[in-house]
Design a protein around this nucleic acid. Structure first.
Length: 420
RNA sequence: GUGGUCGUAGCUCAAUGGUAGAGCUCCAGUUUGUGGUACUGGCUGUUGCGGGUUCGAGUCCCGUCGACCACCCCA
């Protein structure tokens, strides 16, 4: 029986990939002074119904059910409502701005395809309580450095920067109400993919045409971008960012800067996306908390595809992997198994990944196993105890030493001991 | 939810409608306390599943499930 559609089994190799991705996310976020938080996997269904209309896509795609206490519950499809709930509950305890990130699994019941599964890991980072362009730049810079952290460069990805407020101002100047604005933004999102005639049909009633939208987008870089771009320039990260007003993001709640990260080859869907949402926390918390915020999410699925397809990033991932076994203890004489076990314990206490044969086996076979596990060193324990042999497999160099000298010879993991 | 393409061993793939195979992986060996090569042997399939056509179906037809792609959407 296979895993459910859209859900993944994680064999050791898959776990290693996942750990590499989430480990890199954490390391880079911490470099930026972000602290990690998390919430429950299961939330009240009400949390998601609250600010969404009946029939909204996000509600349709919810994994929801009644629990044994007859509560309506749902597996979390995103982090923002949980974050807003947590912030509203204890906001006073935290110094502003709050720089929080999380690495969590999310669930959406939608048709799976490349880059989209029903359970996935997502990195989320938010700066809460700071509305300045410096905060916008900090978030974009973090997104850029996450990508750089995986070994990607400007030839692999681009951050497309836009501004929802510039759009709203433009639409207000054309006399669009909220419903019309939503229709226009939906069309702007598709302007590169859908036929102009079709879009014009959809724009009927808004007083705007595709040509109007193109004109606005061609207008380029609104004044609001200047301080954000300047801050990125100062960091030396400006070249990773392209102002592009055709990015609008699907969500209604964005109020300012929005951005998405794309691979340069345009083979994949967006790798990350986010923006400023200065009124969402107030809305989700029923006014209990009123804080400006900006954040973004980056999923593991599309990112994983891009790592696989990018030789530099893939090589970096492989280089980061540590073999399951670094030191293999060969039991050359079963009469000395007890002594061998003591040696195993010594190297493990030192921190070396150590393995050995659980059952009697010929020495040749044990060396084969050491090779197969990727061990760097073999320690041979046999009849000559307390003398033992330590061997570097790659060079085939071997030395006979007293067992008490082993810790000094091996040293600590992480060091690169030479041959013996 | 809609459409298209495709489902053969753990993996990559063969098999003009006529007895389901190969390579890799995996497991066990190749006599004494030292290796990734080489050699020998072994395991694994209701050909995704269920119907139908046919003397006979991996192959043709229908359905279903799954994968991939596009639409939808992308929190």
């Amino acid at each position: 029986m296979p895993a459910l559609p859209g859900f993944r089994d994680f064999y050791p190799e898959d776990c290693e990939r996942r750990n590499y991705v989430v480990g890199t996310w954490r390391a880079v976020a911490r470099r930026y002074g972000f602290v990690e938080y998390d919430g429950p996997t299961l939330e009240s269904g009400e949390l998601y119904r609250k600010k969404n209309e009946e029939g909204a896509e996000i509600l349709e795609q919810l994994y929801s059910f009644r629990d044994r206490g007859d509560r309506e519950v749902a597996l979390r499809p995103e982090m923002t409502p949980t974050l807003a709930r947590m912030v509203a509950a204890k906001e006073k305890h935290f110094r502003k701005p709050m720089k929080w990130f999380c690495v969590s699994n999310f669930f959406r019941h939608e048709r799976q395809q490349k880059g989209r599964l029903r359970e996935f890991m997502q990195f989320n980072a938010d700066i809460i309580g700071e509305s300045s362009p410096e905060a916008d730049a900090e978030i974009v810079a973090l997104a850029v450095d996450l990508m750089r952290g995986f070994g990607f460069g400007g030839e692999h990805f681009v951050v497309r920067l836009s501004d929802r407020k510039a759009w709203m101002d433009f639409l207000a100047s054309r006399g669009c109400d909220e419903t019309q604005s939503r229709a226009v933004l939906a069309c702007a999102d598709k302007i590169e993919r859908e036929a102009p005639e079709k879009l014009d049909e959809k724009l009927a009633g808004t007083g705007l045409t595709v040509a109007d939208l193109r004109g606005f987008i061609a207008g380029g870089s609104p004044a609001a971008f200047a301080p954000v771009l300047a801050a990125l320039e100062a960091r030396g990260l400006r070249d990773f960012v392209e102002p592009d007003l055709s990015i609008v993001r699907g969500l209604a709640y964005y109020t300012g800067v929005v951005f998405e990260i794309f691979d340069r080859s345009k083979n994949l869907r967006a790798i990350a996306g986010g923006g400023r949402y200065d009124t969402l926390i107030k809305g989700l918390s029923d006014g209990a908390s009123d804080l400006p915020a900006i954040g973004f999410g980056m999923g593991d699925v599309v990112l994983g595809h891009l790592i696989d397809e990018t030789p530099a990033a893939d090589a970096q991932r492989r280089a980061a992997s540590v073999p399951a076994c670094e030191v293999f203890v060969v039991v050359a004489d079963e009469a000395r198994r007890a002594e061998a076990l003591r040696i195993v314990q010594v190297t493990r206490d030192l921190g070396w990944r150590t393995d050995f044969s659980l059952k009697p086996a010929k020495v040749g076979r044990q060396f084969q196993d050491a090779e197969g596990l990727g061990a760097r060193h073999a320690v041979v324990v046999g009849a000559e105890w307390p003398a033992i042999k330590i061997k570097t497999l790659a060079t085939r160099q071997e030395a006979s030493v007293d067992q008490s000298e082993l810790p000094a010879l091996l040293g600590k993991p992480g060091a690169q001991p030479g041959s013996f």
